[in-house]
Design a protein around this nucleic acid. Structure first.
Lengths: 162, 162
DNA sequence: ATCATTTATCTCGATATCAAGATAAACTGT
DNA sequence: ACAGTTTATCTTGATATCGAGATAAATGAT
């Protein structure tokens, strides 16, 4: 009897006409997401960051040397509004973690590049970050993780068809 | 080859020393959560609400007649900061969807109650909301949904042990 | 070549959130 | 009773986000 069970029981009592079986799944995805965010946030904070800044630094790092992408590329990778990305880049720049360069190929655009400090930070953080993620799943046996991952992919395909 | 596969491949190339298997699961939970939020948000907007306001109205409705809870009860149910709940209640009150009453049993506290307009709105919305949720899952066969729900519960238990 | 359109990013105003501290009422032990 | 503690909510200031519109450069059609 977890929290989502409690909610679905309340609905069964109050609105027995409604089929809340989909809610039982979506609600659990939401709770789980929040629990993961919460667990990972502590690692970000230890390095003076938050999830938003980590997201940008990790995207640049993943892109490979020279760790340089345009704001537009970062936008596509992170699914936020353009004004949000402008703000994230500005803050990372004032933290000295990224450098903003002119794009010689297109002067409407810029190139955002990890500074040496930014690269060192993200590379150090990543080890702790993946260890934190592993710790959030450690109580789940491997065969369950495999099945879970498969069903998560299927659910994603399903929601994209909707 | 979905978006999370793309990211894990980038990490495998850039940081082959890191084990990103946990990330492959947590990343999928995050994407799925965002996709569900996105799908549900459209229903909220059709009724002039957002997820935050819907959450409060639904919590009051679920509580049963007379649809009345204290700000503290709402806080416990929704996992936000106290100032956030103050703000949500103020906005719902100015929308005429809830009424704020004195708590005769404890004058530090208030009782927040669905107005007739708020009750009518949430009851109408709920039908569309559960239909939207069902549509987000409709492409997923029932036996997969059952297995998925079980694994979501197991994952939640696992993360709570961490 | 020139003008219209598209593309890339930024600015601005509105909203939502949180954390920390403030306020006020209700308990608790003496 | 009463002082100290706890509980319930609100206030405030900082930050993050979004959407719409602004700006400026690149592209395309004639």
């Amino acid at each position: 009897m977890d929290h989502v069970d409690f909610i679905t029981e309340q609905w069964a009592r109050e609105r027995p006409d409604l089929d809340v079986s989909a809610m039982a799944i979506i609600g659990r995805v939401a709770r789980l997401y929040l629990a993961y965010q919460d667990g990972m946030q502590k690692t970000f904070a230890r390095f003076g960051l938050n999830a938003a800044k980590f997201d940008v630094l990790a995207t640049l790092r993943r892109a490979g040397a020279p760790y340089r992408l345009s704001p537009g590329d970062l936008l596509k990778a992170t699914m936020v509004a353009s004004g949000t990305m402008t703000n994230r880049i500005a803050r990372l720049e004032s933290d000295g973690l990224v450098l903003r360069q002119i794009n010689p190929a297109d002067s409407r655009s810029f190139l955002i590049e990890l500074s040496p400090k930014g690269l060192a930070l993200i590379d150090r953080m990543l080890e702790e970050h993946v260890a934190t993620q592993e710790s959030l799943l450690v109580a789940m046996p491997m065969e369950e993780r495999v099945a879970f991952k498969t069903l998560l992919s299927r659910a994603q395909i399903a929601v994209e068809q909707a």
